[in-house]
Amino acid sequence: MKRGAVTYGSAWALVTGAGSGIGRCYALRLAALGYRLLIAGDRREPLEAVGREIEALGGAEVRICAIDLARTEAARELFDHVQTEGIAVDVLINNAGIFSFCDILATPPERIERIILLHDVTATQLSRLCAADMIRRGVRGHILNMASYSLWMPFPGLALYSASKAYLKSFSVAFAREVGERNIRVTAVCPAGVATDLYGLTPYWQRIGLRLGVLISADSCARRGLKALWRGRRCIVPDWWNRIWIPLCKALPMCVLRPLRRYTMKFQK
Score class of each variant (00 low, 15 high):
6 V>P: 03
7 T>K: 10
10 S>W: 13
18 A>T: 00
19 G>T: 03
20 S>T: 11
22 I>H: 02
31 A>Q: 08
33 L>A: 01
34 G>I: 02
37 L>M: 10
42 D>K: 13
43 R>G: 13
44 R>E: 06
45 E>F: 12
45 E>Q: 10
45 E>A: 11
46 P>K: 09
50 V>W: 08
52 R>N: 06
53 E>S: 01
53 E>H: 01
55 E>S: 11
55 E>R: 10
59 G>F: 04
60 A>F: 06
61 E>P: 11
62 V>A: 03
66 A>Y: 11
70 A>Y: 15
72 T>S: 14
72 T>Y: 12
87 I>E: 01
88 A>Y: 00
89 V>F: 04
89 V>I: 12
90 D>N: 06
95 N>M: 12
95 N>H: 10
97 G>Y: 10
100 S>M: 11
103 D>P: 09
105 L>T: 12
107 T>S: 12
113 E>Y: 13
113 E>I: 11
115 I>A: 07
117 L>S: 12
117 L>Q: 14
118 L>N: 02
118 L>H: 02
119 H>K: 15
123 A>P: 12
125 Q>F: 11
125 Q>W: 14
134 M>F: 12
143 I>G: 09
148 S>F: 05
150 S>L: 04
151 L>F: 15
151 L>T: 13
152 W>A: 01
153 M>T: 00
154 P>L: 07
155 F>C: 09
156 P>N: 15
156 P>A: 15
163 A>H: 01
169 K>D: 00
170 S>W: 07
173 V>K: 14
176 A>Q: 14
178 E>M: 03
179 V>I: 11
180 G>E: 05
180 G>F: 01
180 G>I: 02
180 G>Q: 03
183 N>Y: 00
183 N>R: 06
185 R>M: 00
185 R>I: 02
195 A>W: 06
195 A>Y: 06
195 A>F: 08
200 G>Y: 09
202 T>D: 07
204 Y>D: 12
215 L>F: 14
216 I>R: 09
219 D>P: 13
219 D>K: 13
220 S>I: 13
221 C>G: 14
222 A>S: 06
226 L>P: 00
228 A>S: 01
231 R>V: 09
243 R>E: 02
246 I>P: 03
247 P>F: 08
251 A>M: 11
253 P>M: 07
257 L>R: 10
259 P>E: 03
260 L>K: 02
261 R>D: 06
262 R>V: 01
264 T>F: 08
268 Q>V: 00
268 Q>I: 02
269 K>T: 14
